[in-house]
Computed example of a mutant assay.
Amino acid sequence: MDIALPIITLVVGLIGGFFIGVYYLRKQMTSMQNDPEMLQKVAKQMGYNLNSKQMQRAQQMMKNQNMGGRGPAGGKGPKRKSK
């Protein structure tokens, strides 16, 4: 029992931390989508300088991802019909 309790506590903490992190990240992505200045700031921190056309494209991609559509960033592209 002296070994099991700390291990169980660690696992529960990791799972809880993961879900809290996912929630926080989604919230930040949603606010970034609505605030182009914040998106530009993040892009500059990553070493990119986005022009207005690239900024609009990035916002559109984020909007599509939030609506349930999966673009290239989602890992799956549009389904193709096989012959």
Results as ranks from 00 to 15, higher is better:
Met1Asp: 00
Met1Trp: 00
Asp2Thr: 00
Ile3Thr: 12
Ile3Cys: 01
Ile3Leu: 13
Ile3Met: 09
Ala4Asn: 01
Ala4Trp: 13
Ala4Asp: 14
Ala4Glu: 11
Leu5Glu: 12
Leu5Phe: 06
Pro6Leu: 11
Pro6Gln: 09
Ile7Asp: 09
Ile8Tyr: 02
Ile8Glu: 08
Ile8Trp: 04
Thr9Glu: 10
Thr9Pro: 01
Val11Pro: 02
Val12Met: 08
Val12Phe: 10
Gly13Glu: 05
Leu14Phe: 12
Leu14Ser: 04
Leu14Asp: 01
Leu14Tyr: 06
Ile15Ala: 15
Gly16Asp: 02
Gly17His: 07
Gly17Thr: 05
Phe19Asp: 10
Phe19His: 13
Phe19Leu: 15
Ile20Met: 15
Gly21Lys: 09
Gly21Pro: 04
Val22Cys: 03
Tyr23Ser: 13
Tyr24Lys: 13
Arg26Pro: 00
Arg26Tyr: 04
Lys27Ile: 05
Gln28Asn: 11
Gln28Ile: 10
Met29Arg: 11
Ser31Met: 11
Ser31Val: 03
Met32Cys: 06
Met32Glu: 12
Gln33Trp: 01
Asn34Met: 11
Asn34Cys: 01
Asn34Gly: 04
Pro36Leu: 07
Glu37Ile: 05
Glu37Pro: 02
Leu39Gln: 04
Gln40Ile: 02
Lys41Thr: 04
Lys41Cys: 00
Val42Leu: 04
Val42Ala: 02
Lys44Ala: 03
Gln45Phe: 03
Met46Trp: 07
Gly47Gln: 12
Gly47Cys: 09
Tyr48Pro: 01
Asn49Ser: 11
Asn49Ala: 09
Asn49Gln: 13
Asn49Ile: 03
Leu50Gln: 05
Leu50Glu: 06
Leu50Trp: 03
Asn51Thr: 08
Asn51Arg: 10
Asn51Gly: 12
Asn51Trp: 09
Ser52Asp: 15
Ser52Asn: 14
Lys53Trp: 07
Gln54Lys: 10
Met55Ser: 04
Met55Thr: 14
Gln56Cys: 02
Gln56Ser: 11
Gln56Asp: 13
Arg57Gly: 08
Arg57Ser: 13
Arg57Glu: 15
Arg57Trp: 06
Ala58Glu: 08
Ala58Tyr: 01
Gln59Thr: 07
Gln59Asp: 03
Gln60Arg: 11
Met62Tyr: 01
Met62Val: 11
Met62Phe: 09
Lys63Tyr: 09
Asn64His: 13
Asn64Leu: 15
Asn64Pro: 01
Asn64Val: 04
Asn64Phe: 06
Gln65Ala: 08
Met67Pro: 02
Gly68Cys: 08
Gly68Arg: 10
Gly68Gln: 11
Gly69Phe: 08
Gly69Lys: 13
Gly71Lys: 05
Pro72Cys: 02
Ala73Pro: 02
Ala73Val: 11
Ala73Tyr: 02
Gly74Ala: 05
Gly77Tyr: 10
Lys79Ala: 12
Lys79His: 12
Arg80Gln: 12
Arg80Leu: 14
Ser82Arg: 14
Ser82Met: 14
Lys83His: 14
